[in-house]
Simulated assay, not measured.
Amino acid sequence: MQPSDSLRAAFRREAEALDGIDLEAYRQFDRDPLEPVIGLGPREASIGFFGRDPGRQEVKWGEPFVGSGGQKVREGLYQALHGEPLPDFEASIEVGRHVFWANTVPYKPIGNKAWSMAVKKRFQPLMAELLVKHWQGRTVITLGREAFLWFGIHQAREVRQALEAFWQREDRFEATHRTTLALENGQCATFDLAPLPHPSPLNQAWYKRFPDLLEARLKALNVTAFSAMP
């Protein structure tokens, strides 16, 4: 699945006026800096992963979640589906075809610094449209605090407060949170968020625990149910 032509064009228009895209990285890999790195997956995929933004490897391959942190996610997904360790990079790409992928902003920032809230707000309507209108699944494994709290951007105050309160819970990486995501036109959808810490090696507090937390999440969400998919 790829974004509709109109949605892809909208992403490109926003990117034209976006300061902070790592143009050097796009030039290094001969990639178009206006092209969003989303990856998506099957429209009918029951599970989605939602992260912060692409990094250098994502730009290189034009695929989301393929850098060091993303590979931790794909390793866990492969283990859950096949019951054995991930054999190689090609297998990590192929296993990603079973799920849906998206980020708060689909462009690599300079220095891999998180995009500002102003930038996330600019792209939120487009990403929300992608989730609500172009994907049929409603269970999202969010990676890190920013990805989880993104679901409160441009939403009602009580939605934002509920997300903030859930993030303060000690069991936030085991429990799930149901929230409604509304578009500017009033169309909305309800999502079950299953947060996990960000899998970056820089996240020393959680990095070593991430594989076990992901394994538990995937088991609880019965991800192995589609292990027989081609």
Score class of each variant (00 low, 15 high):
residue 24 E to W: 00
residue 25 A to N: 05
residue 25 A to H: 04
residue 25 A to G: 10
residue 26 Y to T: 03
residue 27 R to C: 01
residue 27 R to G: 01
residue 27 R to V: 04
residue 28 Q to V: 05
residue 29 F to A: 02
residue 30 D to S: 03
residue 30 D to Y: 15
residue 31 R to A: 11
residue 32 D to M: 06
residue 33 P to A: 03
residue 33 P to W: 02
residue 34 L to H: 11
residue 34 L to W: 11
residue 35 E to D: 15
residue 35 E to I: 13
residue 35 E to K: 04
residue 36 P to I: 07
residue 37 V to F: 11
residue 37 V to E: 01
residue 38 I to M: 12
residue 40 L to P: 05
residue 42 P to R: 13
residue 42 P to A: 01
residue 43 R to F: 09
residue 43 R to L: 07
residue 43 R to Y: 14
residue 43 R to V: 14
residue 44 E to W: 04
residue 45 A to W: 05
residue 47 I to A: 06
residue 47 I to Q: 10
residue 48 G to H: 12
residue 48 G to A: 13
residue 49 F to H: 13
residue 51 G to M: 12
residue 53 D to F: 15
residue 53 D to C: 14
residue 53 D to V: 04
residue 54 P to S: 01
residue 54 P to Y: 03
residue 54 P to T: 02
residue 54 P to N: 01
residue 55 G to N: 08
residue 55 G to R: 07
residue 58 E to K: 02
residue 58 E to G: 07
residue 59 V to M: 02
residue 59 V to H: 06
residue 59 V to E: 05
residue 60 K to C: 13
residue 61 W to K: 01
residue 61 W to D: 11
residue 62 G to A: 12
residue 63 E to W: 08
residue 63 E to H: 12
residue 65 F to K: 02
residue 65 F to P: 12
residue 65 F to H: 10
residue 65 F to I: 07
residue 65 F to S: 11
residue 66 V to T: 00
residue 67 G to Y: 03
residue 67 G to Q: 09
residue 68 S to W: 02
residue 68 S to I: 14
residue 70 G to Y: 07
residue 70 G to H: 09
residue 70 G to I: 01
residue 73 V to Q: 04
residue 74 R to H: 11
residue 76 G to V: 13
residue 77 L to N: 08
residue 77 L to F: 15
residue 77 L to I: 11
residue 77 L to E: 09
residue 79 Q to V: 00
residue 79 Q to D: 15
residue 79 Q to R: 15
residue 80 A to F: 00
residue 81 L to N: 01
residue 81 L to M: 06
residue 81 L to Q: 05
residue 81 L to D: 05
residue 82 H to W: 15
residue 83 G to N: 10
residue 84 E to R: 13
residue 86 L to G: 05
residue 86 L to N: 08
residue 86 L to R: 12
residue 86 L to T: 02
residue 86 L to S: 08
residue 87 P to W: 13
residue 88 D to E: 11
residue 90 E to M: 15
residue 90 E to I: 15
residue 90 E to V: 14
residue 93 I to V: 15
residue 93 I to W: 09
residue 94 E to A: 15
residue 94 E to I: 04
residue 94 E to S: 09
residue 95 V to G: 05
residue 96 G to Q: 00
residue 96 G to A: 09
residue 96 G to V: 05
residue 97 R to V: 05
residue 98 H to N: 15
residue 98 H to I: 01
residue 99 V to W: 04
residue 100 F to N: 13
residue 100 F to M: 15
residue 100 F to Y: 11
residue 100 F to H: 13
